[in-house]
Nucleic acid binder design. Structure first.
Lengths: 154, 154
DNA sequence: TCAAGCTGATTGACGTGTCAATTATGCCCG
DNA sequence: CGGGCATAATTGACACGTCAATCAGCTTGA
């Protein structure tokens, strides 16, 4: 088969591509709605609260928190501003570095997180794990790995 | 195995879940960056322009356009405002229904779309189709179908 | 006919994300 | 010491998305 005939995806390949992405979005959207419903938290809130709840003293420097959850600092800064307004976290001066801030888990934040966790994990099982056969679950992992490897290699 | 032991996902299942979603995002992000790079268009712009380019007279009523690309009307309205400012589309009064508007593909929009299409399709092939074996591609389709079916059934 | 309600589309408020610029502080080296 | 660079974090401008409210024009039924 010549290079020319393989230049563009077929209709079927495009369909799989769109299905693949859109389905991920649909599952994510449903999970987000349930999380919101059960706890009033967004996925971003949940990620922040999870990281803080696991930190010693339930506090982290902003940049450590950003690294832990894999966010850009400016994104985190904006998000923390919104979470602080809602009383989920506090920001305190950092004693060892006057430039830095420590993000502290507030009681309201801990409560919301604890309330969210079990239903959230159950929902992940329900919407993702239970929807797939063991073979499909394994395939999903391999597909993700293959896509990532291809991305990195270029 | 008791119901209790299966209440929550295992570490491995959670890892696959996160990998699956994050990888989709990574691929999408790379594709978005390339589209932006090559044509200055966002995925939303591209969807709108694709629908318009295929419409007779390269024009559509707002609500038909929204239905075609599966967007809420308010989302479309906001997006069209931004696209109109950039000269990619125009909005005209609808002759048969004074409430309605027609969205018209502008020359700049057509040019940008035509410039975007080939590289975009090539990128989808490169980043998605070529990354997977035929088996994996088929599995991806089946996984998406299984997740969707599970979502609908509840 | 005309008030009541339906529909097409826009708008405003706000949450979320990126990028670039800014501010303040720490640190290093001549 | 102190000028210059690196680092911590925030800020502002903007793109994008959802939801609820709004507004204008169509449509219908007593």
């Amino acid at each position: 088969m010549s290079a020319t005939t393989r230049r563009f995806p077929t209709q079927e390949e495009l369909r799989v591509w769109r299905d693949f992405l859109e389905t991920g979005d649909l599952v994510r959207a449903e999970l987000t709605a349930r999380l919101q419903q059960s706890s009033g938290l967004s996925p971003g809130d949940y990620a922040v609260l999870l990281a803080l709840s696991e930190a010693v003293g339930q506090r982290l420097r902003s940049s450590e928190l950003a690294a832990t959850i894999g966010w850009e600092r400016s994104r985190l800064s904006h998000h923390l501003g919104r979470m602080e307004k809602r009383g989920l976290i506090r920001r305190e001066e950092c004693l060892t570095d006057n430039r830095g801030h420590e993000v502290v888990l507030a009681p309201e934040g801990l409560a919301a997180f604890q309330e969210a966790t079990r239903p959230h994990l159950r929902d992940i099982r329900e919407l993702f794990v239970d929807a797939l056969t063991p073979d499909q679950l394994a395939a999903a992992g391999q597909i993700a790995a293959a896509l990532r490897a291809h991305l990195v290699r270029g």
